Simulated assay, not measured.
Amino acid sequence: MTRRIALWTGVAAIAIAVVVGSLIVLHPGLIVSLDEAWNVEMGEWRSPPLVAFALVMNFLGGGWFAVVVVPLGVALLGLLRGWRASVSVLVVFLASVVAVQLVKHLLGRARPVDLLIASDFGSYPSGHTANAAALAVALWFLFPRIATVIGGALWVIAMGFSRTVLSVHWFSDTVGGALVGGGTALVVAAVLWRWVGPAPIPEGDGGAPPGGTTRASAR
C-alpha cells in the first residue's frame, strides 16, 4: 500500500459512512427495514453462550479496556518500529474516538429498544466496531502480513456481530463503525506516513515478494 492509496481509501470509507448516516436521517426507510429484520433475527439466535460471548466482546471493545489498555498495548508493540510508530498508533486510536463521537452527536440515532446492556448516547456509528477496525489497521501497518489482515477482519466482524447480538446497535451501525474507524486510521497513517508506513517485510516471510513495496519506496 502506498501513502496515496491509504489516504484515498480512508477518505472514501469515511465518505461512505457519512452517506449511510445521512440516508438513515433523511430516508430511513431505505435502511431501517434491513436493520429491524436483522435485530429480530438476532433476538431469535440469542442464547446464553452467545450472549456470554457478546458480553466478553463488549468488555474488550469498549470502556477503559479499549480506551486505555488496548491503545497502550499496541503502542508498546509499535516501539518495535520506533517511538514515532508508537506515537502514531496512539493518534490513530484518539482520532477514531473523536470521529465516532462527532458523527454520533451529529446524527443522534436512537438505539434498538430491546438492548440488553446500558450504552451511551448515539447508536450510529458503533464505537466498539470502530475501535476494532482502528486496531486492525494499526496492527497491519505495524505487521503487514496476510495473517494480520485475516485476523483483523475476523476481529471486526466478530465485534460488529456481538453488538447486534446484544441489540445495542443496529446492523448499519456496525458497518458505519467499521468504515469510520478503519477510514480514520488510514487517513492518520497517510498523514504520518514517514512514521507509520508499512515496514519492510523480510524475504521469504510470505507477506510480500522480495523487492516489493517498502516504507522507503512507497510514496
Rank of each mutant, 00 (worst) to 15 (best):
L79S: 04
R163A: 07
T129Y: 00
V56R: 10
P210R: 13
G183M: 02
V11K: 00
V187C: 02
H169Q: 06
I117Y: 05
M57I: 08
N131P: 03
W195E: 00
L102I: 11
A118R: 13
T184W: 01
N58H: 10
L139K: 08
S123T: 07
W195V: 00
L79E: 04
R81Q: 08
K104M: 08
A13W: 03
M42R: 08
F93Q: 04
K104A: 05
A12R: 03
R219G: 15
V137R: 06
P49H: 05
V32D: 14
T164I: 14
N39K: 13
V67G: 11
A75S: 14
P209S: 14
G212H: 09
L154W: 10
P48G: 06
T213E: 10
A138D: 03
I31K: 14
A136C: 03
V165A: 09
G197Y: 05
V74P: 09
R109E: 11
L55G: 03
G151E: 05
I5C: 05
F53H: 03
I157K: 08
V98D: 04
W155S: 12
A66R: 10
G181L: 01
V196R: 02
Y124T: 09
W195H: 02
V168L: 06
R4W: 04
V156G: 05
L106Q: 11
R194Y: 03
L186P: 00
L192Y: 01
G10S: 02
G177H: 01
D35P: 05
V40Q: 11
W155L: 15
Q101G: 06
S119M: 09
R81K: 09
G10K: 00
S33V: 12
R109Y: 12
M1C: 09
V168W: 06
E44N: 11
V92S: 02
H105I: 02
W193I: 00
I157S: 04
G127C: 08
V67Y: 14
I24N: 09
T213Q: 12
Y124G: 08
A6W: 07
L154V: 14
G63F: 13
A218T: 11
L77T: 10
G43P: 06
V175N: 07
G182K: 03
W193Q: 00
V97D: 14
G160F: 10
A12C: 02
A75P: 09
F141C: 07
A185G: 12
R111N: 10
I201S: 15
V100Y: 08
L26R: 14
A208C: 11
G122L: 10
V137E: 03
G160N: 11
